[in-house]
Write a protein that binds this DNA or RNA. Structure first.
Length: 852
RNA sequence: GGGCGAGUAGCUCAGCGGUAGAGCGCCGCGCUUACAACGCGGAUGCCGGGGGUUCGACACCCUCCUCGCCCACCA
């Protein structure tokens, strides 16, 4: 360690934490402090699979919370001598961006419109959305995300993330597209990906299929309608349904095989009211005799149970709802086009329900009044209307949802992974254990990675979906809607005997599940890939264990036969500062930038790093204030320590011999050991807490005790040396959490960045004087000083008031320890006579008569 | 219905077999040669309830209650 002999010349009169972000942000960038050195070996490198934040709006406190925690871990590993591979990605493809672009510019994509090279979006979004071509839409997405990414980067820099900003990627970028398409083609070749025509959960507003992982239940108002189905073979059968509009889609009724009420009806038929379609009555164990009338109407498709019944009972399809969520123009098989159907066609599900209930009531099929209820209904997590189920051709990747052996293998991967905190693994196990189908990766959207696939068109004009033409890996990335497959030319697109491109895009998780491969240069930079993969750490939020974490494990399992990383740290969830108050205060949203400006980055990081790993934490302005105070205190205390007399030559020759100094170093060595153990277990919060506790002891007790002695450095260089050693250690212990304040102080007296300085070593502190010393000495001296201060406080005297005599009685062990710090206690307490003796623990303080 | 987590000072939370802790807030004192945007000192608790294990339980076990999250159920 190189020390600057005269820190005084570099220290400001009145140190401040304000402005440090700009000053050091610029310096770190200019000096490449966090630049990744790719000549290091795998063993020397610590690689982090940083979550690429969704670039579709603003970063919130939850992001700041998690990323600050991860950054403290990264900084620790760097100081331990590891070379950090700490890239940053932007998740810009996918639906969130499309939605943002639609709202921001007031446009809507219509793939049927040709590209307009001169298109400029409206200044302000108009009332009516402007229909634009797919290429124009994609251009707008790229334009807006590029702007958003600049802002995100600025915020992350302000937060002091020590990422290497030359190592960035975007999930829409060419590298991501290449990796996604390559991985998909390989999945396909190995049979891990496939396409199938099947009932699919469908969002009618976004007009796309969605995956199981993107569902959420919402309590939604509805009503039970009791409806009579007349029969040619006996009396009418009453069913109850919340979706009477699906009666024309009815293909059967179903009851439990043991249900005596319906046993004799199995194998017979009823007719649908209003439409008169003959449908069978079937038996199936999933039918619940307790629900409604015990017999249910099976429609194609009202919910996922319908899909099960439809499949297992081998029923026909009567599709009535289109992909726009409206009743189709043409009725399904057996349903007459006139009459009731004509009343429904073109309506939304909701409108159709209203009308059909009126018709049912008029016809007498509706029994009684509809009974209002609230029930959970499946929604797309980003959607506004309930999902429909439509039959469509989609791409899937196997994930164990339909294959016990694969499921077990993926569960085993979850066990191989080290989870912090460990209980988060349960979320993984629950999810994987509960999967009911494979992973649907295709989306009928526009801004994403296309499938590198075309289909030959037969002479009948129909695409041959089971004979896909695959892109060559060397040609990736490809866009099948613009590029032409080998052996064809553009004029054959869409023509009989020609080809068509697959128009779907991949779900964003199908790309972000390859983030370690994308960032690590998989297949494009094998040298880099070998040095960083599998990665050391995946930090992320708990809510995306079922999506991002699981999907990444699936892809690495297939492609590399192993885990994508060794460890994962799951951060907690950020809660409102005070829900009750938030509700009253008119939607006052907490955004990070104003907080970073008000309290300072170090303060906000302090709050974030005080939250235990995996523990939900409230936004706490109090904690930020504490962090700010801590950073200011660190500046002031450092300025004081560095301002004390110090002589390089004398210090290097001297030894730390004073018992109190040695006790302090012994205590500090213990803190270093604890902090190191904690950081190694990704417990940044404990490391910070222990460091902070010691720092206040250091300031309030140790510095006060040795102050007077330290002024006379020439006589006793021990304290001068111990103070600087302790300060250097403290700055490095705090550096991962408070990067700006520690760097500022470091610059006053050290060369280079504190963030590249070696992590403190307990053994070195012991060797420097702490060895064999007992930290008890510091404790008893501080306790004695505390009692003396208390006596002065109670007497309403200044802390500098002289004490004529103090008597300290305590156990033999503590008395012996205190005796070794006698001079320091007398000095700090301004005590004329100090008696230390064994006895019942007590402290008697006699203040000198006031001069006044 | 199943799983996970949490209930400790007014507030936010540590502690997790050995005398109940920190910070904020509150009260009192003090401009002390680093810091008054500060310092020093102080008060505050059936450690959710009930059983059990133990010489000893806030901690371990059982059980119940409350809250949060995830999953399942969706006729």
């Amino acid at each position: 360690m190189t020390a600057t002999s005269d820190p005084a010349s570099r220290m400001p009169e009145k140190p401040s934490i304000d402005g440090l972000e700009d000053k050091w942000g610029a310096r770190w960038e200019a000096e490449g402090v966090y630049r990744f050195d790719r000549t290091k070996t795998r063993a020397e490198i610590f690689s982090i699979d940083t979550p690429p934040p969704t670039v579709s709006g603003t970063l919130h406190m939850g992001s700041v919370f998690g990323y600050a925690q991860t950054d403290s871990l990264a900084r620790y590993q760097r100081m331990r001598g590891r070379e950090l591979f700490y890239p940053m990605g932007w998740d810009d493809n996918g639906l969130p961006t499309e939605r943002r672009v639609q709202n921001y510019y007031g446009v809507r994509c219509d793939p049927a419109i040709p590209y307009d090279p001169d298109f400029t979006p409206p200044e302000k979004p108009g009332k009516e959305q402007v229909q634009i071509s797919r290429p124009n839409f994609v251009e707008l997405c790229l334009r807006l995300t590029a702007e958003d990414e600049k802002q995100f980067e600025a915020l992350w820099r302000r937060l002091g993330l020590s990422v290497d900003w030359t190592q960035t990627y975007t999930t829409i970028g060419p590298e991501s597209q290449r990796a996604s398409q390559r991985a998909f083609l390989r999945n396909l070749a190995r049979g891990e990906a496939y396409s199938a025509e099947a009932p699919t959960l469908w969002d009618v507003d976004f007009r796309t299929a969605v995956a199981q992982a993107e569902l959420e239940d919402r309590e939604t108002p509805g009503a039970y309608h009791r409806i009579l189905f007349p029969s040619d073979h006996g009396e009418a059968v009453a069913i109850e349904t919340t979706r009477p509009e699906l009666i024309p889609a009815c293909v059967a009724l179903v009851a439990h095989p043991d249900d005596d009420r319906y046993k004799n009806r199995f194998g017979t038929t009823v007719r649908t009211p209003l439409f008169g379609v003959e449908v069978p009555i079937k038996a199936h164990h999933l039918a619940d005799p307790e629900k409604g009338s015990g017999i249910a109407m099976i429609c194609t498709f009202g919910d996922v149970t319908d899909v099960t019944w439809w499949r297992e009972l081998d029923l026909p399809v009567r599709t009535i709802i289109g992909r726009d969520g409206r009743i189709l123009a043409a009725p399904p098989q057996d349903v007459p086009a006139d009459g009731a159907w004509a009343e429904l066609t073109g309506k939304t599900a909701k409108q159709a329900q209203k009308r059909i209930v009126e018709l049912l009531a008029e016809s007498g099929a509706l029994v009684g009044e509809p009974k209002p209820i609230t029930h959970p209904v499946k929604y797309f997590e980003k959607g506004d209307r309930p999902l429909e189920i439509v039959s469509s051709r989609q791409w899937y990747i196997r994930n164990g949802g339909r294959d016990a052996e694969l499921r077990e293998a993926l569960l085993a991967r979850g066990k191989e992974l080290t989870w912090q905190p460990s209980h988060m693994q349960a979320r993984y196990d629950n999810w994987v254990g509960g999967l009911v189908g494979d992973w649907l990766i295709s989306r009928q959207r526009y801004f994403g990675v296309p499938f590198p696939v075309w289909y030959p068109v037969g002479d009948d004009g129909e695409p041959r979906y089971d004979e896909p033409i695959l892109a060559d890996e060397a040609a990736l990335p490809v866009d099948p809607s613009a590029d032409v497959p080998a052996g064809y030319d553009e004029s054959q697109r869409g023509k009989p005997g020609g080809f068509v491109g697959d128009l779907d895009i991949m779900d964003t998780w199908a790309t972000s599940s390859l983030s370690p491969q994308i960032a690590g240069g998989w297949e494009t930079d094998p040298d880099l890939f070998d040095r960083v993969f599998p990665m050391d750490l995946r930090p992320q939020g708990p809510e995306i264990i079922r999506t991002w974490l699981f999907a990444t494990v699936v892809r690495a399992h297939f492609e590399h036969g192993g885990l994508p990383w060794r460890d994962t740290s799951i951060n907690g969830w950020v809660l409102d500062p005070d829900r009750k108050k938030m509700a009253k205060s008119k939607g006052n949203v907490v955004t990070p930038l104003p907080l970073l400006e008000e309290y300072g980055t170090d303060a906000v990081r302090y709050w974030a790093c005080s939250g235990r790993p995996g523990t939900d934490t409230a936004v706490d302005f109090g904690q930020m204030k504490v962090g700010r105070r801590l950073a200011i205190k660190l500046l002031n205390a450092s300025r004081f320590v560095l301002g004390l007399p110090y002589d390089d030559e004398r210090a290097s020759a001297a030894e730390i011999t004073e018992p109190l100094d040695r006790a302090m170093l012994a205590r500090l060595a213990g803190v270093v050991a604890e902090a190191t153990t904690a950081y190694d277990a990704y417990d940044y919060a404990r490391a910070l807490e222990r460091t902070e506790a010691f720092f206040w002891e250091f300031c309030d007790d140790y510095v006060e005790l040795v102050k007077n002695r330290a002024y006379d450095e020439a006589a006793a260089p021990s304290a001068a040396k111990a103070l600087r050693l302790a300060l250097s250690t403290l700055l490095r212990l705090f550096a991962p959490t408070l990067p700006y304040a520690t760097e500022e102080i470091w610059s006053w007296w050290q060369d280079g960045s504190v963030h590249r300085a070696p992590w403190p070593d307990a053994a070195e502190l012991r060797a420097a004087g702490g060895s064999g010393a007992d930290p008890l000495l510091l404790e008893v001296a501080a306790a004695a000083l505390g009692r003396i201060r208390k006596a002065k406080s109670e007497a309403q005297q200044s802390m500098r008031a002289p004490v004529s005599e103090a008597v300290v009685r305590d156990t033999a062990e503590r008395v012996a320890a205190l005796a070794q710090a006698r001079g320091d206690v007398m000095n700090a307490g301004v005590v004329a006579s100090l008696v230390i003796e064994e006895g019942e623990p007590e402290v008697l303080v006699t203040l000198a008569p006031s001069p006044a």
